[in-house]
Simulated scan of single mutants.
Amino acid sequence: MNNFNDKVNFIWSIAELLRGPWKPNQYKDVMLPLVVLRRLDCVLEPTKDQVLEKYNKMKGGKVKNLDPILNTVSGHQFHNISRFTFKKLKEDPDNIAANLAAYIKGFSGNARNIFDQFGFEKEIEKLDRNNRLFLVISKFADDIDLHPDKVSNIDMGYIFEELIRRFNEASNEEAGDHFTPREVIRLMVNLIFLPDADILTKKGIIKSLFDPACGTGGMLSVSDEYVHDLNRDAGLAVFGEDINEQAYAICGSDMLIKGQDPDNIALGDSFTADAFKGRHFDYMLANPPFGVEWKAEEDAIKKEHEEQGFGGRFGAGYPRVSDGSLLFLQHMISKMKPVGEGG
Rank of each mutant, 00 (worst) to 15 (best):
N5F: 02
D6H: 06
N9W: 03
N9S: 10
N9M: 03
Y27D: 10
K28L: 03
K28C: 00
P33D: 01
V35L: 14
V36A: 12
V36S: 08
V36I: 07
L37G: 08
R38Y: 04
D41F: 00
E45N: 13
T47P: 00
K48A: 06
K54Y: 03
N56R: 11
M58E: 13
M58G: 00
G60A: 02
G61F: 07
K62E: 14
L66K: 13
L70W: 12
T72P: 04
V73N: 10
I81L: 08
F84K: 00
F84D: 02
K87D: 10
E91D: 15
E91F: 05
D92S: 14
I96R: 04
N99D: 15
A101Q: 15
A102P: 01
A102D: 14
K105M: 10
K105N: 12
K105A: 13
G106R: 05
F107V: 00
S108R: 04
A111L: 06
F115H: 02
D116K: 12
D116R: 11
E123W: 09
I124D: 12
L127G: 06
D128S: 15
D128L: 01
N131A: 14
I137P: 09
F140K: 10
A141V: 02
D145G: 04
L146S: 08
D149I: 04
K150T: 14
V151R: 07
I154S: 07
I154A: 07
E161H: 08
E162M: 01
L163M: 09
E174C: 11
A175C: 01
A175Q: 03
R182S: 15
V184S: 11
I185V: 15
V189R: 12
F193H: 01
L194Q: 13
D196F: 15
T201I: 09
T201V: 14
I206M: 04
K207F: 05
F210M: 08
A213P: 03
A213M: 06
A213V: 13
L220D: 06
V222C: 03
D224Q: 15
E225L: 13
E225N: 11
V238W: 05
D242T: 15
D242Q: 07
S253V: 04
S253N: 12
Q260G: 12
D263K: 15
I265S: 03
A266D: 11
G268E: 07
S270Q: 07
A273K: 09
A273D: 10
A275Q: 09
G278A: 01
Y283R: 01
A286G: 02
N287R: 11
F290N: 02
F290E: 07
K295D: 08
K295T: 04
A296G: 01
E298D: 06
I301C: 03
I301A: 01
H305P: 00
P319H: 02
P319F: 00
V321F: 02
D323G: 02
G324C: 01
I333A: 15
G340D: 13
